[in-house]
Simulated assay, not measured.
Amino acid sequence: MSALGTPNPFDPFGVVASMNEWCCLLKAARELGDADAEMMDTLMEADASGPAPLSPAAQAKVRNLSRLLRGLNVDVDAYRRRAPEAMRGLEAACLACTERSRCTRELWTGTAAANYPGFCPNAAALDKLRAA
């Protein structure tokens, strides 16, 4: 359709308009991804100067990590005192994770300790921690 509401003779089915809308959505998604990466960098920089306040979603991800560690029989507070840098690394990976809903579901059903290697970005680090 043209600006006047008449069909475009070169695009009678609106394919070009749909593609333009799709491209705009992809561009917005990339911009959000870039903003998310910038936010992660900011959080990591702020972590060096002290804890930054976390959003509710970020708090939920960090809570999931604590619940998973407890499910793996790791004393979260003792580990945080013993290896604060390693704990911050685990938390940073959780903050960047895209599998929060699966993690929450696995924790809720009690299967996270068995299934985390299939979805958790911290799987290798958690395996080392369990072996130690």
Rank of each mutant, 00 (worst) to 15 (best):
Ala48Asn: 06
Pro12Thr: 01
Gly33His: 03
Pro56Lys: 14
Thr104Met: 12
Ala78Met: 11
Ala58Gly: 13
Ala96Leu: 08
Leu68Asn: 00
Asp11Cys: 08
Gly89Phe: 09
Pro117Val: 06
Leu69Lys: 12
Leu26Ala: 13
Asn122Phe: 08
Arg88Asn: 13
Asp47Ser: 14
Arg102Gly: 04
Arg70Pro: 01
Ala60Gly: 12
Ala29Asn: 15
Thr42Gly: 07
Gly5Asn: 06
Gly110Val: 02
Val74Thr: 02
Leu126Met: 11
Ser101Tyr: 02
Ala29Thr: 05
Arg105Gln: 15
Ala35Gly: 00
Ala35His: 03
Tyr79Trp: 12
Arg130Cys: 04
Ala78Lys: 09
Tyr116Phe: 10
Ser55Asp: 09
Ala132Leu: 10
Ala46Ser: 09
Pro121Lys: 12
Arg100Asp: 15
Leu107Glu: 11
Ala86His: 13
Leu4Gly: 03
Glu85Leu: 14
Arg70Leu: 13
Asn73Phe: 04
Glu31Gly: 01
Met40Glu: 13
Arg100Gln: 15
Gly5Arg: 04
Ala57Glu: 15
Leu26Trp: 12
Arg81Leu: 14
Ala132Val: 03
Asn8Phe: 07
Pro84His: 06
Glu38Asn: 07
Pro121Met: 08
Ala17Cys: 06
Ala93Leu: 15
Ala3His: 01
Leu54Met: 14
Leu43Thr: 00
Glu99Asp: 09
Glu31Asp: 10
Ala125Val: 06
Arg30Tyr: 02
Ser55Cys: 09
Val16Gln: 11
Leu68Gln: 01
Trp108Val: 02
Leu32Asp: 13
Ala78Leu: 13
Ala52His: 08
Cys23Leu: 14
Glu99Ile: 01
Gly50Trp: 00
Arg130Gln: 08
Arg67Ala: 05
Leu68Gly: 02
Gly71Cys: 10
Pro56Phe: 13
Met19His: 10
Asn73Ala: 12
Thr111Leu: 13
Val15Ser: 13
Glu31Pro: 05
Gly14Tyr: 07
Arg70Asp: 14
Gly89Val: 02
Ser18Ile: 09
Leu126Phe: 05
Ser18Met: 15
Ala96Asp: 07
Asp36Gln: 11
Asp77Phe: 11
Ala83His: 04
Ala35Thr: 04
Ala57Asn: 10
Thr6Asp: 01
Glu85Phe: 08
Leu4His: 01
Lys128Cys: 00
Arg81Trp: 00
